[in-house]
Design a protein around this nucleic acid. Structure first.
Lengths: 227, 227, 227, 227
DNA sequence: CATGAATGAGTTTTCATTCAT
DNA sequence: CATGAATGAAAACTCATTCAT
């Protein structure tokens, strides 16, 4: 129990922060929402300032300008994404099970973080120019591929996976499915109804994805009971 | 010497361009580029006017305001896409071949129309609000589902397709892959290199996708020669 | 007598301009004042807009941004300066008289246009970066040198001018004197009183300058009656 | 172990720099650069703080505000200049030589202190309002005039100088040339090339200036060998 | 004495839209 | 129908200065 004057003081009177990391985190949190909702050009610095606990000026103090803030938001999103991938341990699982787990976990992770998906979609509209320029992000992309490479290697060694199974391709396939599921929900529902995005529909889609991914590389894979 | 009122009128007013449809088409063409490149909030009316052959005022004259223009752009690309889907005749093909053709054709169509993809992505960022409000677009979405339904029916009747094969789900699956292939090329390449988006990589991905789609519903499907 | 409706209309109701050149000239006039008084960073776009007849937006419409406006102001100043130099005809005068006239005329011109002097002083503080970048200004600097070259040539040919007389050096000498007279009046007066900048003082200084310039190149020159 | 209150106090507060004069000098040095480069309104307190060894707060602590700092900078450069003028002893020299030395020394001093020149130019743009308000500077201006008065008196007494030779006018003339040489180098070079500001050009100009000044007051003065 | 964090008030700049002709 | 000129409202961004520690 921390009852030191300092800590309680900070909480008691919320007039002044003097805690740069907390302030930065707060700004980033609000900015992530804002940019995810309205895009880079649509997002408003004023709106971010108003919803955060500090003045607009601090955004410039810490992030330089709108693009700097956007870039930081993007880095945060990517870091969180890769961190979540890193957390997942599949090294002890049987190859097929490992791949299944990676697939469904990704499905759930993407579905649980629509903001991240939107921000990546936005970044694609900008031709990934900010992502490309970020030195931070370039470093954190290998984990998931390494994991899939390990699973592939073990699967092939065990004679369970087809020879052409490829980690990068598998990651792409899984990502495509999971990403589109979140990113295009709005237009797909508007065009074809929300059958696939109801709770039931998502459960079914998740199972379909697993079957498709496994079926594409596991020799003789049969969906247990699809419906 | 033609001194008829009509001709002289034209000359007197200096109206060398009197074809409203051509003007509208020109504006739409430029606006499609602009919105696809910069998004709705990022797209500039000024920029559109400057690159088109007419003045800014005409944009307002024909499309009311920025949103109206955006909506028209959206309707335009949707119409073009659905029209291309309509053109494709698969009724005479064997179910498996028909499905394969639908898949690869979609892959090619999406890859050939990145502007369309970007606009849909943008529309999703706006929660499909303009798409939902457009009466025009709602009508255009039945064709592809009807075609897939026909293929599914025939496939199941022939004992070739699994019982759970579903036209909507198939369309969704095909779309997911083909859309993501274009929409996320920038960030995926930035993160993992452009292996999959090289010319070679795309040929391979296209074949993989066909195999995945067919493998997911065709009983006993085996990829002929995947690599 | 122009009594056409158009012209009088414009004058009568000052609500809308629709006369780009007049608007631009008006903005430039006010901006010249503003920048001459407060410098580039000290000058306020708002203030310029308020004092001109049009809205702030028009400044950006016609001049792009603050620097563009400043550059235009600078170009205007230089153009006026060179134009005034061009007007002066000394080709028919005897060399000594010609040089005397060029000198005193420059003295008067600089003294009559303190704004120009200030703007050039300001530009020097900016290391002439805008002047250097202006293609317009680069073209208008030869006239005065040409005139002085002609006077020097004739003076030397007549055996009146010393052999080392140099048009560029003469221009520099005259300029230094006349420029400093205006540009440093404030600090000089603050330090040493305004003896030299009183009306009498200026008359005397002007004559001194003429004597100094003539004395520096005319063989055997004697100031007639200095005081 | 020194546990005297004073020493421990210093350690406790973490004050590793306790020399106010050094701190002030450091701030002034950086501020002089800054204001000389960007002017009063263009100079940034932030930039000064960043380049100096202390924090922004100290600037306000020692100088009150931006204007106070600027005023101190101005006083500093003026003091340095007048001090250098004071150092120069010409009382023992023959009048003509004395005047020649004063002239060339001023030329060199100005050329060696472009920051001083720029600050005076800036101050002139502000109509010398800070200089006028400074009590410190008012006292520093007598020296040079006194020296020139002495030289003039001796020159006239010796029958060498013309009767109208005037110390203030001489100072003004010398200053004008030497000041302009530095202050307007940028625009003059941009307009007419850097002939006069090359190393060779400056040597020649310095000699010319001496000849001009001497020629203006010394009876029968002949430039020895002007080129 | 000293610092980094924080800010209000102002300044530049942008942009969809409308007006006079 | 068509245009260039014009704008208000809002957005990004800046900067001297002050505050809590």
């Amino acid at each position: 129990m921390d009852t030191s004057p300092k800590a309680s003081d900070k909480l008691r009177k919320g007039n002044w922060k003097q805690d740069p990391d907390a302030v930065k985190a707060d700004i980033l949190r609000v900015a992530t929402e804002e940019f995810a909702t309205y895009g880079l050009s649509g997002g408003r610095i004023d709106a971010i300032a108003k919803r955060s606990t500090v003045s607009k000026r601090m955004i410039y103090y810490y992030f330089g300008n709108k693009e700097g803030l956007y870039k930081s938001v993007l880095e945060g999103v990517y870091a969180a994404l890769r961190e979540s991938e890193e957390t997942l341990k599949v090294g002890d699982l049987e190859p097929t099970e490992a791949l299944a787990l990676l697939t469904t976990t990704t499905f759930d992770a993407y579905a649980a973080n629509p903001e991240f998906i939107r921000l990546i979609a936005i970044e694609n509209i900008h031709n990934a120019e900010y992502l490309s320029r970020s030195e931070v992000i370039q470093k954190l992309n290998k984990t998931i591929i390494d994991k899939l490479a390990d699973v592939c290697d073990r699967g092939k060694a065990a004679g369970q996976f087809r020879a052409f199974a490829d980690p990068l391709e598998l990651h792409w396939t899984i990502s495509a499915f999971c990403f589109y599921n979140v990113s295009n929900q709005a237009t797909f529902s508007a065009s074809f109804g929300d059958t696939l995005h109801s709770e039931q529909g998502q459960v079914r889609l998740r199972r379909r994805l697993r079957d498709i991914v496994l079926g594409s590389v596991v020799i003789g894979y049969r969906p247990e009971n699809s419906d």
